[in-house]
Design a protein around this nucleic acid. Sequence first.
DNA 1: CGCGTGACCTCTG
DNA 2: CCAGAGGCCACGC
Length: 101
Amino acid sequence: MSRPELLEQIYTIVDQIPAGRVTTYGRIAAMTDGATPRMVGSAMRHLPEGHQLPWHRVIAASLTLADHGGAERQHQKLRDEGVMFDSKGRVSAHLVWPDGT
DNA sequence: CGCGTGACCTCTG
DNA sequence: CCAGAGGCCACGC
């Protein structure tokens, strides 16, 4: 599977994330055919200008915001969508998409 | 072609 | 919970 294809899959999956829900890099990578979490992170980092993707709904597997400069903005956006964080800065596990243990 | 780096993940202690 | 080790793939130098 070519990288552009994987990129398309990543964009598609992220676009399918419902509002108020979140998912992890690993999950997205697992949904794609062969992509790795690093590729997902790279895709989010090199996002196009006219992107409409809910990148803020993509978090780390530990249910914490990834370590990047836009973490504050991401936190804001998620909070604005109704996503609640606990005192440890973690997202409620039942908000994870597609599953919600 | 090798090396370092990165919005990461999983497994062990 | 934190730290370390190994693995993953693409990019720039």
